[in-house]
Design a protein around this nucleic acid. Structure first.
Length: 393
DNA sequence: AATCCACAGGAAGATTAGGATA
DNA sequence: TATCCTAATCTTCCTGTGGATT
């Protein structure tokens, strides 16, 4: 049930598979397939379909005695033009016993190498660029899109995959028209389809009857609410199973799913917090401190931008850290709000001004622990807010 | 109805980091 | 390696405002 597992059958994506296959089919006749652009939110099966069709293509190619190359690359990892070309070159290395080093060669020489290797290979090459929007600079795409005109015998077609619908808007028009010969959109799964996917997976992964009847519908419903993300649904089920297993339960129940969802959410927020820039961390730390103290005093659980800024400034002084202006804090606070770590909405307290009312919805303890992983907060752990010091003095 | 608090949040310019280029 | 460019970050200065209070 891990996200890396690639099933043999992709339920409810038959049409997409057929569409993509029919675009790529000319490759089996030795012709150049159109370039394709695939859009779709996360967990809608873009990558899975692309890989699946690729595998089929190679298989069918072997049957028919046609040689087809299929290169899959994730542009989040292979994110520069050089690495892209190098990766393509590497694909041919085994066959031709050539060698391209990780670094050192000028990019155009690698390009020339790729070209000559492809021509020697004489086949059709399908290049899949997953998450193309992560690629740095559109130069790389431009190079690839015009590679066909530089080739003599070989043929190349490109499949671009992105979850950003607006991605092509910022692209060079030439690249845009050449890449977007065919467009495909993957729509999110609905709750029923997710349920079906889960059921099939469960049959393979879990023993019979270890799962309560309402668990799968619940997982699918929760995931469907969240943009119909199949990966999310599977994660939910897997984590539920792990939770049930850990507590030595015989069956996975409804409650495990609820716990699992909470855990996934916490994990997600924790990860976001961990990768926050330092200034934002400091601000969050201030908010948490005030929150903690308010709770202790039984005061109401909200605070204003002014209070946060005051505490933040003191913390900066203590930690000998550069202090930003309140204007900037305003923006960073609303950024934290957008990330879903805190809730901040503008309210008016009438005569007493207009401010943001800031609240911390998730467990303060978890977040404090995460923040204190950072050395910066070691010294600040025992810091007391103004009003608290006043109390002790 | 008028006042006025405590900020929100826009505009424009300064500073800075990182990457490209010569 | 030095220099230039760009985007992101941050500051300064500013006007705007919802509604409890006067």
């Amino acid at each position: 049930m891990r996200p890396t597992y690639m099933p043999e059958i992709l339920p409810h994506r038959e049409k997409e598979i057929k569409d993509l296959a029919s675009v790529l089919v000319p490759a089996l006749r030795g012709e150049t397939p159109s370039n394709v652009f695939i859009y779709g939110k996360t967990g809608t099966g873009k990558t899975a379909v692309a890989k699946f069709v690729g595998k089929e293509l190679i298989k069918k190619g072997k049957e028919k005695g046609k040689h087809v190359n299929y290169i899959y690359m994730n542009c989040e990892i292979v994110d520069t033009q050089y690495r892209l070309l190098q990766n393509i070159a590497n694909h041919f290395i085994e066959e031709w016993n050539e060698h391209v080093p990780f670094t050192g060669w000028p990019t155009d020489e690698v390009y020339a190498k790729v070209r000559s290797m492809m021509d020697k290979d004489e086949g059709v090459t399908v290049i899949v660029l997953d998450e193309v929007d992560k690629l740095k600079g559109d130069e790389a795409l431009y190079t690839l899109s015009r590679i066909n005109s530089d080739l003599v015998t070989a043929k190349v077609s490109i499949i671009g995959i992105s979850n950003d619908l607006k991605f092509t808007e910022f692209l060079d028009p030439r690249v845009k028209s050449s890449l977007g010969e065919e467009n495909m959109i993957f729509y999110p799964y609905d709750a029923g389809q997710l349920q079906d996917i889960l059921e099939r997976r469960v049959k393979m992964a879990l023993k019979f009857q270890v799962i309560d009847d309402d668990v799968i519908p619940l997982c699918s419903a929760l995931a469907a609410q969240e943009h119909g993300d199949a990966r999310r649904a599977l994660d939910l089920l897997r984590v539920s199973a792990e939770i049930a297993e850990r507590s030595n339960a015989k069956r996975i129940t409804n409650r495990d799913v609820r716990v699992a969802q909470h855990k996934i959410e916490i994990d997600h927020i924790t990860e976001v917090v961990r990768t926050l820039p330092n200034q934002s961390k400091l601000i969050l730390f201030s908010i948490l401190l005030i929150n903690k103290q308010n709770k202790k005093e039984g005061a109401n659980q909200m605070m204003t931008t002014g209070e946060v800024f005051e505490t933040y400034r003191d913390l900066c002084k203590k930690a000998r850290y550069d202090c930003l202006t309140q204007r900037r804090i305003t923006d960073l606070v609303s950024e934290l709000d957008m990330l879903g770590i805190i809730t901040a909405r503008v309210i008016s307290k009438g005569r007493y001004g207009r401010t943001r009312e800031i609240q911390v919805p998730v467990s303060t303890k978890d977040l404090l622990v995460v923040l204190q992983e950072d050395d910066m907060f070691k010294d600040l752990a025992n810091y007391k807010t103004k009003s608290q010091t006043r109390l002790t003095v």
